[in-house]
């Protein structure tokens, strides 16, 4: 069995290009990257089947003259799966475009909000500076009404204002 240089080089090149595209924010590029990675993986599995160039099963004959058919069967399954998933990702891209005229991966705002919280003591924070979502729950400021009006009819337990 003579080792071939073509397959490893192609597999490596496809993996490199695929990973590069996968890291993009644009979903179409991500999809293209995924397709490249899928092909790279299929070639990898194919190269597990022995020397290239032989038919998997051809009539009756010496098993030495055949390639291992199992990797090719596996690849066939993998290709079908990749195809289905690519179609689904395309549908997502289309939906994303219809909804927002944009197909880039958005920023996770909730993460940003949690990350933007200061590491200061909660007592030193002025609730007015905070996003209303982040204000302490029972705080009068979060009610968006005059605290004086509320003082009469809301029974605020001690300590809840500073939480």
């Amino acid at each position: 069995m003579t080792p071939t240089i073509v397959l490893p080089v192609m597999i490596g090149g496809l993996y490199a290009a695929g990973v590069y595209l996968l890291l993009d924010r644009s979903l179409t590029r991500v999809l293209l990257g995924f397709v490249l990675l899928g092909n790279a993986t299929n070639l990898l599995v194919l190269s597990a089947g022995g020397p290239s160039g032989l038919a998997p099963i051809l009539g009756y004959g010496d098993p030495e003259g055949f390639n291992d058919p199992l990797p090719q069967a596996l690849i066939l399954t993998a290709i079908v799966i990749t195809f289905g998933v690519s179609a689904f990702v395309l549908a997502i891209i289309h939906r994303s475009w219809r909804l927002a005229r944009n197909e880039a991966v958005g920023t996770d705002e909730e993460d940003r909000r949690v990350a933007a919280r200061r590491a200061t003591d909660a007592d030193e924070l002025d609730p007015d500076d905070l996003d209303p979502q982040d204000r302490a729950a029972g705080h009068a400021d979060s009610l968006a009404a005059d605290p004086e009006d509320l003082a009469d009819d809301v029974d605020v337990p001690a300590g809840s204002g500073t939480r």
Binding site: L22, L27, V30, F34, L37, G38, T41, L44, V45, S47, A48, L70, P71, L74, A78, I81, V85, F88, V89, I92, R95, S96, L99, V105, G106
Partner: peptide, 26 residues
């Protein structure tokens, strides 16, 4: 859709790693 994109892409990547692992095991 926004949450789904993250999930789909990450799952796809893990499936590819798994498939490549199977190829190497074989």
């Amino acid at each position: 859709i926004r949450g789904g994109v993250t999930y789909v892409i990450v799952s796809l990547t893990s499936s590819l790693v798994f498939l490549a692992g199977i190829g190497l095991v074989y």
